[in-house]
Simulated scan of single mutants.
Amino acid sequence: MGTQSAVSDRLRSAGFSTIRYGLALNLLSIGRLKFESYEVENIRPLITASPMFSWLVARLGEHRLAKLIGVTEMTMGSLVAARPFAPKASALGSLGSAGIFATTLSFLATTPEAWQEKHREPKLSLAGQFLIKDIVLLGASLLTAADSLQGGRQSR
């Protein structure tokens, strides 16, 4: 049993590290893309159809809003990665990223292009398929938040 427990502990540790740094890399990479014109084109249907973002588009413009989103994503990614030396800040970044992914999942309900309209039952379009992955990233955000909060208590 001791060997199984040791293997399990190593797998759990490797899994959490993979989740944490994969999440951080996703946020940093996706955030950086928001400074590219083609990415502004890609997110246009999502942000203009969203009641949460459409007023910001009108107020800031698409490019400035995309940059604001990008800075937010990169900040959360950096905080998520900070777990070894700042677990409380990392927990904050993980909770912030959970908010980001919950928001992007809301686009499934607000973006007409997320669903194929020619089918009787709901079927995701390419845009919907792109968004659905955020369920996994939301789960990763919640797990890394819990792990960071636990680490913050252990470092006291």
Rank of each mutant, 00 (worst) to 15 (best):
V57S: 14
M52F: 14
L60Y: 14
V57L: 08
E62T: 12
A58G: 09
S50P: 06
S90E: 14
F85C: 11
T75S: 09
K67F: 10
S50K: 03
G70E: 11
F85D: 13
G77M: 01
M76Q: 12
V71E: 08
T48A: 13
A81I: 08
A86P: 01
V71K: 02
F53L: 13
L68P: 09
P51M: 01
F85I: 15
A89S: 13
P87T: 04
R59F: 05
K88C: 01
P87W: 03
A82F: 02
W55N: 07
T72I: 03
A58M: 02
T75F: 04
W55L: 04
M76Y: 10
A89Q: 02
A89V: 01
L60E: 14
A49M: 03
L56M: 07
A89W: 06
S78Y: 01
A82V: 04
W55C: 00
T48Y: 00
L56S: 07
S50E: 03
K67I: 12
R64Q: 15
T72P: 04
F53T: 08
S90P: 14
I69C: 08
K88T: 15
P84D: 06
I69N: 14
A86F: 05
R83L: 06
V71C: 09
P51G: 00
L68C: 13
S54T: 11
K88Q: 14
L65K: 08
S90L: 07
F53C: 05
P51W: 07
P84V: 05
H63S: 13
G61Q: 05
P51T: 01
F53G: 11
M76W: 08
S90F: 03
L79E: 14
R83S: 13
V57I: 10
A81H: 00
P87Q: 04
L68V: 15
T75P: 00
W55E: 02
S78N: 06
P87N: 04
T75D: 08
A81Y: 01
L65N: 04
S50H: 08
M52Y: 13
S50A: 14
F53P: 06
P84I: 06
